[in-house]
Simulated assay, not measured.
Amino acid sequence: MSDTPRLHRAGTTLLDRARELRPLIEREAGAAEAQGRLTDPVVDALHETGLFGVWAPVPLGGSESSPREFMAVVEELSYADPSTGWVLMATTLENSTAGAYLGDDAVERIFKGPRMPVFAGQGTRPGVAVREDGGFRLSGQWSFASGMLHSQYVHSLGAVEGTDDVRIFITPIEDAKLLGNWDVLGLRATGSIDYSIDGAYVPESQTHVFTANEPLRGGALFRLGVLDQALICHSGWALGVGRRLLDELARHARARTGRPGQIAGSDAFHTDFARTEATFRAARALVHEAWDDAERALDAGRLLDVREETMVRLALNHITSTIAEVARFVYASGGTSALRDGLIQRLFRDAQAGTAHITSGPQLLRECGRELAGLAPDQSWAVFTLE
């Protein structure tokens, strides 16, 4: 167990580097979408700037950014390109939790190279693991492995046969069969393909229980566990995409100032834009309020309580539904510029894909409502439900 009682704060260096990468990321976004993966110049830049290590534990050479520091980095990258932000958030979630929770032998093998290792995989629908000689044999098929085409390791959820034990299993990319079926509406450049594993041996040190929240390395950040860290990831992504949608619509409107019949001269558009801006900013404020409270809890050396867990879930659900509304408004207001291939259309498609993620589903919102209304006494959060 880590003996670091407080959150580590990395400062603004990585956020500054993320901002400096915006021109490169924007230039490469079209090519990335066309090829279904980030381009090599972007991947190399994420390595060279240390951004793949933004959340890895400090003892392993990572920056171990606090929740809101990390959220700001993901927001910045997602503003530049939603697919780039998505890949960064997914892969760094997985290398950070591996670094914090895996056994010493596994960490020595995996984190020994000159570059921060890149992980991809899926942690919601489990495969099957069978115990064998100090480890497990893992088999299954998983979907939506964001960043898989850039990864060296695979992060997979598995249920241990004959037990209630559900674990994360880390395997080399060579153990996975990549199914290559990423033909989707949005987030095309994430390469979030399906994959399968057929009986790969996984040493126990390359696994950890899914609900782990006591780190072997790193500080208070890792008391959140995998799921709560995923909530931070998706919140930061939504903030970046929502802001870019509104900014692009404003640019579109300004470019048409003085032309007859354009939205720049429409009172109705002015009113709707103001209302949408206010709605987005309010949702953004809720995200920051919820994570400000969560950071104070972690700094005090405790786990989040039930209400704090509710609020970080509610904040993500609300910002996600809000950017879906923002995207519809921007698309409807953009006219033929949104209909044709281009940035507004791509942002709209990416928003639709990102808001479909399981972490923002309707079941979670219902459970938040039960807890907030005082209808779940003595219950606590178990992933997406109260029990």
Rank of each mutant, 00 (worst) to 15 (best):
L179W: 08
T163N: 05
R284Y: 03
A255T: 11
T207S: 06
G361S: 15
A250L: 12
I232A: 03
M1V: 00
S196N: 11
G261R: 04
L149R: 14
L227G: 11
S266N: 13
P41A: 09
G261W: 09
E371V: 14
D293E: 13
L303Y: 14
D16H: 04
A238S: 14
L303R: 14
S139A: 12
R281L: 12
N213W: 08
G240P: 02
A129C: 13
H270R: 04
I168R: 08
G374C: 03
A145R: 00
T310P: 08
E367F: 05
F210Q: 15
S196P: 02
R251S: 14
G191I: 11
S192G: 15
G199E: 01
A268E: 15
S66H: 03
I25E: 04
V58I: 10
E309L: 10
L185I: 10
F144V: 12
I319D: 11
V118E: 10
L60P: 01
S196A: 15
A45H: 07
P362H: 12
G265S: 09
V160I: 14
A159R: 11
E28I: 02
D292I: 08
Q379P: 10
R284S: 15
V241C: 02
R296C: 09
F222K: 12
V43G: 05
R9F: 12
L365Y: 04
A332W: 00
V42Q: 04
I323W: 08
M148C: 10
G265F: 04
L149V: 02
D16E: 01
E108I: 02
A250M: 11
L303S: 15
R366V: 13
R223Q: 06
T163D: 03
S143D: 01
G301A: 11
V42P: 08
T336R: 15
L93Y: 10
G50W: 04
Q122A: 15
I358G: 09
D81F: 05
H252R: 13
G335F: 05
I323Q: 07
P377A: 15
L239C: 00
A32D: 02
Q379S: 14
T91S: 07
A120N: 09
T279K: 15
T4A: 04
